[in-house]
Computed example of a mutant assay.
Amino acid sequence: MLEGRSAGEYMAGHTSYVRREPIGVVGQVTPWNYPLMMAIWKIAPALAAGNAVVLKPSDTTPVSTLLLAEIASEFFPAGVFNVVCGDRDTGRSLVAHPTPQLVSITGSTRAGKEVAAAAAPDLKRTHLELGGKAPVVIFDDADLAAAAEAIAVGGYFNAGQDCTAATRVLAGPGVYDDFVAALVEQARETKTGLPDDEDVLYGPLNNANQLARVTGFVDRLPDHAALGIGGSRVGDRGFFYAPTVVSGVRQQDEIIQDEVFGPVITVQRFTDEEEAVRWANGVEYGLSASVWTKDHGRAMRMTRRLDFGCVWVNTHIPFVSEMPHGGFKHSGHGKDLSVYSLEDYTRIKHVMHNWG
């Protein structure tokens, strides 16, 4: 039992109680952006709840997961934690196999939809942690220096390859111009490159396809958008992309509606709180958001109205293992971290005894 609900006599002569049991075999698929951490997020609650795991890491970043499995094999019984390498077809085979009773994926919304469809014929449970398009709502009374610094870290960390990245800024009318200028200056001082340079904040994009994706978003910017800085590849080797700031964008622009997954920050100017809420919620994703204001009442209103699974106030991107991580809408369902993840990896059985 994960909490203290007691057994009870709800019918004369009978005692009822609830058992939380392991689901059985769980199939899991992890992404390339945090390969080792995502493997831990997946296997820890599944194994702690008593399940066996078959995990497929990304085909571009499998080595750390294989090393984890090799080390774990010294401690876990054989067959408890299994790693299968391969591409998308391998993932599809894992999901479609009749043995797993739950399939869990961290990845793109496209991949999540495919997993849900493949799981449907066997009515398997799904745990989907998918893409994000986090709004960062900056009100006129916010601490601009703190917000700009947090966005520079939260937007460029891991080259923006994070579904909670602070890459969609909505700024109030009184601070918009100053904030765009601050973000441009932050980008000018931010460096990408090889890890042997101590001044480098973030490294390359994961692969050639991801570089082409990020480049395409910037290359297709509409005429009304303004490229403040960046917007180009860095060097002619590897997949490094410059820190980029784009302003003047509108709500229906592709770069606002779709996940870029790169070091590209957009800035929109909103007129009032109502418009800020409407624009923040006006995407298909619902993973995370942040609000920056000194007004406690406004912060409470915004956190209630924002349609996102995690909302930060005057900060962006920190997580603690004791609290849940997961989103709404096209960002999927189910929770990683915290006791809620343990609930996701168990099933509920009602047991009733006739003692009359």
Rank of each mutant, 00 (worst) to 15 (best):
P324E: 12
Y34T: 14
P98V: 10
N158A: 09
V267Q: 06
S104C: 06
V320D: 14
V180T: 10
A171N: 05
A146I: 03
G174A: 13
V153E: 11
Y340V: 01
Q101I: 00
H127M: 11
G8T: 06
V18C: 11
Q210M: 10
E275L: 06
G248H: 08
L94S: 06
G327F: 02
G297K: 08
D141L: 07
T106A: 07
Q101Y: 01
L221T: 04
G262V: 01
W292N: 01
V63L: 15
F261I: 00
K113C: 00
G131R: 01
G228P: 03
P31G: 09
W32Q: 07
G332W: 00
D253M: 03
E21T: 10
L123C: 13
S290M: 04
V267L: 10
A118F: 04
V53Y: 00
D258I: 01
D87S: 13
V63K: 13
V18G: 04
S288R: 03
F76V: 13
R92E: 14
A171G: 07
F75M: 08
N206Y: 02
G230I: 01
D196A: 14
E114T: 14
T90P: 00
V234I: 15
A146E: 14
Y340D: 06
V153L: 14
A145D: 15
K113N: 03
S58Q: 09
V115D: 13
V245Q: 06
A69W: 08
A12I: 03
P77T: 11
V264N: 01
L183K: 05
R220F: 00
A78G: 08
M1E: 09
G238K: 05
W41A: 08
S232P: 02
F270Y: 15
T271Y: 02
N206K: 02
G24E: 06
D89Y: 01
G107Y: 09
G248L: 07
G203C: 11
V175A: 12
K335L: 08
V249T: 15
G155Q: 05
V234R: 00
Q210W: 01
M37N: 15
V153K: 09
G203Y: 12
I23P: 00
A289N: 05
Y345N: 14
F217N: 00
D199T: 15
S16W: 04
W292V: 00
A134L: 06
T303H: 07
T346M: 14
D336M: 05
G262C: 03
T167K: 00
F157N: 09
A134T: 15
